[in-house]
Every structure is written in structure tokens, then in C-alpha cells.
Design a protein around this nucleic acid. Structure first.
Length: 277
DNA sequence: ACGAGCGCCTGTCGGC
DNA sequence: TGCCGACAGGCGCTCG
């Protein structure tokens, strides 16, 4: 699933629960089932399982696309990669296809990590910084000012799209929200980062925040077989709209490959050379 | 420093 | 129908 808005949606859903599902907060782990060993990045699976037993969930937070589950002493960190998902389910619910890991609670509920493509990973650590080291600033954090963002772009000379998706540069953007933000800012995905003007950089940061906020408000995007009730897929301006008319100017949306990723843009609203709207 | 290519996985879809 | 390649919300690695 996940880019920042999807991870944030999962975090919010789990932390408080809803009418049917209890909050994850204050659940106590009685046992752990691991169905795919490689899901656990560290420590080794035996230690991972042993240390989780008896822990209580104290808090849930997010850093970029990482979900942090704060326990009494350690922190359990998940990265959902391409297809990971976390759900609270009744303990009696049978194990489903692609379930990789589950935490069983003393409440009769369990937290299940389901991950079709097996790219997702979990870490258990006393020092989250070891897992998160090197990750870039949080895009919605007001500490990231337009001036700082402009400076960050200036000291690199990279194609803007892969740079925005580089988690060391900025935390949380993936393929969908990057395409949407570049369209919203009117910037071509292949522009070199150090050719952006200060106004363009400011526009881009505002656009990034706008699409992320809209994504969170929509409870994320739900496409393909993963459906969580998100609605942002109905608001895509360019993503997966190849050949369809630009919603701003009517020109067919183009698809190119940038950094081995599908990239969608409007050749008129996002001109190769330059600045505009 | 940057970008291309590939590996990690499973599933779906479209073309022949 | 069956097969085969392309593609999918991510990221780490190597190589030039």
C-alpha cells in the first residue's frame, strides 16, 4: 500500500480503533506467530519473538513511511513496502493467505501483518534511530521551511522526481504523491533540482504538503486488491491517467519511465524547460 | 554524485 | 485456453 498518507491512515485507525475494533493502545502481547522469517529484519526471529512476549503497547507514531509501535522498553518498527498491511482481528479469525506475522494479545484480539509480496520488514530495537538513521525531514513538519527546502534542492543536481522519492532527501513520498505534487506545482519530473527557482521550490513544497494532506483526509488511496476504504484514487490528477485529458488543460497525460518508475505528467502544464503557473 | 540495472516476491492484466 | 511479458503504492545493492 503505503506512502505517507496510507501509513498515517493505518496509524490513526489502529491507535483508537472503532466501534467494532478495539484500540491497539494498552494491548498486551501474550505470544507471537511468525509465518515468513524474512519479515523480521532484526534481531534474529527467536529473540524477536521472545522479547515481544509480555510487552504492552504504549504508543503509535510514524516517521516517513515507517510505523513505530512503542512498547514498554523497546520499539517495534514496521515498513510496509509495496503490499504490507496491518489489521486488528479477533484471535479466532483463521490465518489468511499472505499473513506473515501476528501479535496475539490477552484481549482476544491480534495484530496481523499481511504482505503479499513479502517485501515488508519489522525491527525490534531499543534505539529507533538505528533503523531510521539517514532519513530526510518530515514534509509536513513546519521546521522544513521553504528556504531550507530550496537550499536542499540547490545542493543537489538530480532529476527532481527521483530526488523527491529518495527517503534520505525527504521522508514519505512515493510514486503516486510525487507525480501528483509535481503536477500541482507545474514542474516537469525530469527537471534538475538545482535549476528550480526559489518560487518554484516554494510552490513545490506547498504542493507536496497539499497532496499529502488531501491524501490523509481521503484516508489514503485504495487501488488494486488492497481496499481500506481510502478515497484518494478518485482525486488523482495524473497518476495512472495516461492518455486521459489533463484536468487543467485537456492535453493527454503522458507516461514516461524515470528512475525505473512509471511517471505521469502533463506536457503543457509541466513544461520541460520552465516555470509557469 | 548520479543514474541505470537488478534482485527481492506475488499477483493481475493484456496480447498473441 | 494457455503462455509470456509488462507492470504494481519500495528500497538496497552494484557498477560505470
Amino acid at each position: 500500500m503505503p506512502e505517507l498518507p496510507e501509513v498515517e491512515t493505518i496509524r490513526r485507525g489502529l491507535i483508537s480503533g472503532n466501534g467494532e475494533i478495539p484500540p491497539l493502545l494498552h494491548q498486551r502481547i501474550t505470544s507471537v506467530d511468525l509465518f515468513w522469517r524474512k519479515t523480521v529484519a532484526s534481531p534474529d526471529p527467536l529473540q524477536f519473538i521472545q522479547e515481544l512476549k509480555g510487552c504492552e503497547i504504549i504508543d503509535l507514531s510514524r516517521r516517513g513511511k515507517f510505523l513505530l509501535i512503542n512498547l514498554d522498553r523497546e520499539t517495534l518498527i514496521f515498513h510496509l513496502r509495496m503490499s504490507g498491511d496491518l489489521r486488528m482481528q479477533p484471535a479466532g479469525e483463521p490465518t489468511q493467505q499472505h499473513d506473515r506475522l501476528q501479535l496475539n494479545f490477552n484481549s482476544g484480539w491480534k495484530l496481523v501483518f499481511n504482505d503479499t509480496r513479502k517485501f515488508g520488514r519489522a525491527w525490534l530495537t531499543e534505539d529507533p534511530q538505528k533503523v531510521l538513521s539517514g532519513i530526510g525531514p518530515e514534509p509536513l513538519d513546519s521546521d522544513l521551511t521553504p528556504d531550507k527546502f530550496y537550499a536542499m534542492l540547490q545542493v543537489r543536481s538530480r532529476q527532481i522526481k527521483p530526488l523527491l522519492m529518495d527517503q534520505r532527501f525527504l521522508a514519505g513520498l512515493g510514486n503516486i504523491y510525487t507525480d501528483e505534487a509535481l503536477f500541482s506545482a507545474g514542474i516537469h519530473p525530469l527537471r534538475r533540482s538545482d535549476t528550480l527557482t526559489q518560487p518554484e521550490a516554494e510552490r513545490l513544497l506547498a504542493a507536496i504538503r497539499e497532496v499529502l494532506q488531501k491524501g490523509i483526509l481521503a484516508k489514503g488511496a485504495s487501488i488494486d486488491w488492497v481496499y481500506r476504504g481510502g478515497d484518494f484514487q478518485n482525486h488523482f490528477q495524473v497518476y495512472k491517467r495516461t492518455g486521459s485529458p489533463c484536468l487543467r488543460c485537456g492535453t493527454p497525460i503522458q507516461r514516461i519511465v524515470v528512475g525505473q518508475r512509471s511517471t505521469h505528467f502533463c506536457p503543457v502544464c509541466q513544461p520541460q524547460g520552465g516555470s509557469h503557473v
